[in-house]
Design a protein around this nucleic acid. Structure first.
Lengths: 219, 219
DNA sequence: TCGTTTCTGTTGTAAAAACAACCGACTTGT
DNA sequence: ACAAGTCGGTTGTTTTTACAACAGAAACGA
């Protein structure tokens, strides 16, 4: 697990904490490292968790399949990102989504209670960690609202424009890559893949944008 | 402002804090009371805030209108609920939505920095407040994911079923009221009102449910 | 290398939603 | 009490989507 300390140092959770302190906190927070193969489930809907997780290798999707098999990708987790904070509160119910490894991945689990319960004697970084946790979840909250923004658009075209222009703004360039293939993008925006593909091509023919694989350029 | 201390005591933010302590914290946190008339804006998109707000009288909608005038109701705030926590982090950008009073309302503003910055001398409830804040935002996060669940449904009927059955579960009864009129429900689910009204009546005719005004009963 | 799988685009059809327009019932304010 | 506004339901038309099915290209694996 120690080899991932440099990765942890760059995460939001350990922002402002040195490598030595992180190493100390690893045991204090009862950190556990788990490995998953591509396609494997890290967490499943209905599970109850008492951990906060940090992805240190690979890539995950937070998603949900309904009874009719329609998949909806809630969000994407990259290396260094945290997940599960929303279920850190003691009264939070069971998980509402699956967490799936879309690449071979390593995840570190931390005991939630040990983070939010202040231990005055042990390590003095708990208060920093709680604040970091708070900032992280507040950022995730804003991202969810942003996603609600895409989803509240009525047509596939509007959803695409909302998502792509936001992504262009975020990457500060009208040419950018997205972290999804077509099926995943459709699942992310909750539309039909073929209809979306069709709409993308229409938009290209109208001169609104160009694309090649997962690389886009807006005009 | 003192007349609202009993209301504040029952909020998530002040959970576990006595009325006397709350009174002390009001000045410590530089609390300010503002009054709004029905239809007035509490906050506007693009504003930058450094406060956390608690609604102590009335009712608010957190919403967003796009360039085409389509309104989307992100969420509803009732008395005792907190809002704006997602923008408490220092790096959070400007507001992405409007906050509108749908009834005459009173709102108390708290200085964010004073909550999350621990002052060891002043009042010893800051750490409780930070934890409460964390729990509150994590709950809001779960609600947003739940709403994404409704929104990711493809058809108006599926959205209605998802929302109504969730509401029935939440109120532990197949007969329940919803806090929206038809237009607001349509805005909440991001669908056309008349199409939704039509679908509701079809569902009623098929025997799936009954309703009268904002009161529903599922079969 | 060759066969298989995955990914993307394309097309046609059926289903659904958006939109606009209208009506009657009910509220509200003066 | 009356005028104006709000609310919910209804209908018909147009637009959009979902769905199914297929084909070519690229990636992958044995």
């Amino acid at each position: 697990m120690k080899e991932y300390i440099p990765v942890l140092k760059r995460t939001q959770l350990f922002s402002g904490v040195g490598e030595n302190e992180i190493e100390a906190m690893l045991s204090c927070l009862q950190a556990k490292l788990c490995t998953y193969e591509k396609g494997g489930y890290v967490l499943r809907e209905g599970e109850r968790i008492e951990n906060i997780m940090v992805l240190v290798r690979g890539k995950l999707h937070i998603q949900r399949d309904d009874y009719w098999g329609n998949r909806s990708i809630i969000s994407m987790i990259d290396v260094g990102e945290m997940f599960g904070e929303a279920y850190a509160a003691p009264e939070s119910g069971p998980l509402l989504n699956d967490v799936l490894a879309v690449e071979d991945s390593d995840v570190i689990f931390f005991d939630v209670k040990r983070i939010i319960t202040v231990c005055p004697t042990a390590c003095r970084f708990h208060s920093i960690a709680v604040q970091n946790l708070f900032f992280a979840i507040s950022e995730k909250n804003r991202k969810l609202v942003q996603k609600l923004g895409y989803m509240s658009k009525r047509t596939t075209r509007e959803k695409l424009i909302a998502y792509l222009s936001e992504e262009a703004k975020r990457q500060s360039s009208s040419a950018f890559s997205i972290p999804f293939n077509r099926q995943q993008l459709a699942d992310f925006l909750s539309v039909d893949r073929s209809a979306m593909s069709n709409e993308l091509c229409k938009m290209r023919d109208e001169g609104l944008l160009e694309f090649e694989k997962n690389r886009f350029m807006l005009h």
